[in-house]
Design a protein around this nucleic acid. Structure first.
Length: 715
DNA sequence: TTAGGGTTAG
């Protein structure tokens, strides 16, 4: 009961009755104090014992392991042996556990060798199980397997020990294989076994296996008997992205502890449901569950993800008040991370500087905040500062920095980081490899991207999606579709992102049949709720292929209509010349309180251009800033230049170019240059030609258009 | 009649 007061009372009683020297009572007292967390008192009792038998030593060793004092436990084992007391099986079991906790494989192997030499494996199955467990936690899986295979009896303890090793060291498939094996060999399984198996399911995000085990633990009543089973089940479902199921299990739990709530809050946050995560936190407190540091870490992440800075500050204050801030590195990381994610960099930096220890993770958290808020210069600055402090970047740091370089267009820096990565031997890292591919794609350097892609030691679905997205981004739609076929041939599962990319390719190439085929594939292979990115891509694909009825069908089925959904349909109507429908849709969009955004107006202005509706277009352009507060960008201005140009109002187009608040680019000049060709206006054409080659003298399109102007003039 | 094994959340 961990009832220290009554334990202490009874200790006095024991002494009063002259039983203080009894070895049985003494060992029990040591155990009682250890259980209550009072290691000092346990040690006192031990020291006062007139004869210290093997059990007393064993109990004290166990007491130290139980209270996180593993090094002292190993010292005690040595002392015990020096004083000629033969270690019991219990002492050895504890010592092996201590080696596992400390990561001390050398000491562990020594103890293993002693046990083998003395032939102790045969006398007690627990010793063998503990050896398996020690090697498993140390990640020495080959030796763990070997010892396991040589055991006389393989029971649920040794099996679960090995399963733990598998799940903790990235071999969750093996954990599940062993789990299935146990069932075949009718080795009994208890709640702990199922907890391990579900942990493996969580790691693998395997919704089918999770469901299968869910049925089994429900049938055997484990969900009701052991809250941990329910907790890990909720965690597994959230990891699979199956929030509805996770909530169903959570709500059905007879008892919910702080872990249950923490898992749920963390699950919502991971599924981009920060708002709901914070609602759960509130409900948890209403139900009288006190958050611990794990819970706060999750809650802070929720705040960071939705940039709920006020609530984040409230949590920060609470954590400080409870004295949790200085006790825990995770909490410190989470608080700084929350501020960085909310974009409150001054505050993040202040705390960052306040905490003297800046390890790699700490820097990564700050850098990721900068990256999220597009402060890419600060990403590079922090990276340099970190290295000046002699903190070594890890693979996570490198992925952030590469992304920063990519977005900045900092080719020189990016390539230098690439060679740094090669120098420290991290090119084989999955995430780094994929990010390198992405970086070169963002820069439009596809040959370099392909080279990295081809040299990747292993490819995953993300690698394929990155290269496909790279092709799409740079206009190589056929290559994107070819890579998609290859990806499928190699049995990789496309993600929502992959589908969005290939649908885009179909949409640009107006490949109706291909797009429809992909849609069918998505419906078959995507049993879970369709991602909104995919739905919007479907609308865009159907709209651009001219299949507006299909686009509308997907649109109508949307549970939430985002700006992007409206935009896809608006663009579809505008490109197919369905101006009236477009205006009608725009009206509906505004009525649904989803205001048109930057992209909507591109579609709207394009529609006006194609219909030759100059005045209407100008009205929309004005409304954009005056009614909707949207600052038009160069793309909008170019649309208006095109609007004038195509309507034959070349001088208005030129006037706009001259008065533009932004520097016109090559596209802007080409837009009006083409109109000059159509109108046969050689003077303006020449003037625009000069501007265009000032921007980029190597662009052949510019020369071709001028050439055509001359041809048209018969000159 | 005292000691020991496999367990979930950041």
């Amino acid at each position: 009961m961990k009832d220290m007061d009554r334990g202490h009372q009874m200790h006095s009683d024991v002494v009063d009755r002259g039983l203080g020297q009894d070895p049985f009572v003494g060992s029990t007292l040591i155990g009682m104090y250890a259980e209550c967390g009072f290691l000092e008192k346990a040690k006192n009792v031990f020291d006062k014992l007139p004869t210290k038998d093997a059990v007393a030593w064993s109990t004290l060793i166990a007491a130290n392991v139980k209270n996180g004092n593993e090094e002292e436990a190993l010292n005690l084992l040595a002392k015990m042996q020096m004083q000629g007391v033969i270690p019991t099986a219990a002492a050895l079991v504890c010592a092996l556990k201590a080696c596992g906790c400390l990561g001390d494989s050398k000491k562990g192997q020594e103890i293993h060798a002693d046990i083998a030499r003395l032939g102790l494996l045969a006398i007690d199955t627990d010793i063998g199980n503990s050896i398996v467990y020690m090697y498993a936690t140390l990640g020495m899986l080959a030796i763990a397997q070997e010892v396991f295979a040589a055991l006389d009896v393989r029971d649920r303890f040794s099996c679960t020990a090995l399963m733990t090793g598998y799940t903790e060291h990235g071999h969750s498939e093996d954990a599940l294989a062993l789990f299935d094996c146990m069932q075949l060999e009718t080795i009994s399984q208890d709640a702990v076994t199922f907890i391990c198996a579900l942990t493996a399911c969580r790691n693998l995000q395997d919704s089918e296996k999770t469901q299968e085990i869910h049925v089994e633990v429900a049938r055997r009543g484990f969900i009701h008997k052991d809250v941990n089973v329910g907790n890990v089940l909720v965690d597994a479902y959230t990891a699979c992205g199956w929030l509805a199921k996770a909530v169903e299990v959570f709500e059905s739990l007879p008892v919910r502890d702080v872990v249950s709530w923490t898992v749920l809050i963390s699950g919502f946050t991971k599924c981009n449901e920060g708002e709901r995560a914070l609602q759960k936190f509130e409900r948890m407190e209403q139900e009288g569950i006190v958050p611990n540091s794990h819970t706060y870490v999750c809650a802070l992440q929720a705040c960071g993800s939705i940039e709920e800075e006020e609530q984040g500050q409230v949590f920060h204050a609470e954590i400080s008040r409870k004295g949790l801030l200085d006790s825990d590195v995770f909490i410190r990381n989470a608080v700084v991370g929350m501020y960085a994610n909310c974009g409150l960099f001054a505050k993040a930096r202040e705390l960052f500087d306040q905490f003297k220890i800046h390890d790699t993770v700490f820097w990564n958290i700050l850098i990721s905040g900068y990256l999220k808020h597009n402060c890419n210069m600060q990403v590079l600055d922090s990276f340099r500062e970190m290295q000046n402090e002699n903190t070594k970047p890890n693979s996570v740091t490198y992925t952030y920095v590469l992304k920063g370089c990519a977005l900045l267009g900092a080719v020189w820096d990016g390539q230098r980081v690439h060679s740094d990565i090669a120098r420290v031997g991290l090119t084989e890292d999955f995430d780094i490899g994929n990010t390198l591919v992405d970086m070169y794609c963002i820069w439009g350097l596809l040959p370099e991207a392909l080279q990295v892609f081809k040299l990747l030691p292993e490819r995953d679905a993300v690698s394929w999606t990155t290269i496909i997205a790279g092709y799409v981004r740079n206009g190589y739609m056929e290559d994107a579709l070819d890579s998609f076929d290859q990806m499928l041939n190699e049995w990789f599962s496309p993600s929502a992102m992959t589908f969005a990319c290939v649908l885009k390719a179909c949409s640009v190439l107006a490949l109706k049949g291909r797009g429809q085929g992909i849609h069918t594939g998505i419906c078959i292979y995507y049993p879970l709720e369709l991602d909104s990115v995919v739905r919007n891509a479907l609308i865009d694909m159907y709209a651009r292929c001219g299949l507006l009825k299909d686009a509308e069908r997907v649109f109508v089925q949307l549970p939430v209509k985002e700006a992007a959904s409206w935009n896809a349909l608006i663009a579809g109507y505008s490109q197919t010349g369905k101006n009236d429908q477009m205006l009608c849709l725009l009206d509906q969009m505004i009525k649904s309180e989803q205001y048109p955004d930057v992209i909507s107006f591109i579609g709207i202005l394009t529609a006006c251009t194609h219909m030759g509706l100059v005045e209407q277009g100008i009205l929309f352009f004005r409304a954009m800033s005056e009614d909707y507060g949207i600052l038009g960008n160069l793309e909008h201005l170019t649309c208006v230049v095109d609007l004038f140009g195509r309507a034959g109002q070349l001088s208005n187009g030129m006037l706009l170019i001259q008065k533009m608040p932004r520097h016109p680019n090559l596209v802007t000049f080409h837009t009006l240059l083409s109109s000059s060709r159509r109108e046969g206006n050689m003077d303006l054409g020449l003037e625009l030609f000069v501007h265009a080659i000032e921007v980029d003298e190597g662009n052949t399109g510019t020369y071709v258009t001028l050439f055509n102007i001359y041809v048209g003039a018969g000159d």
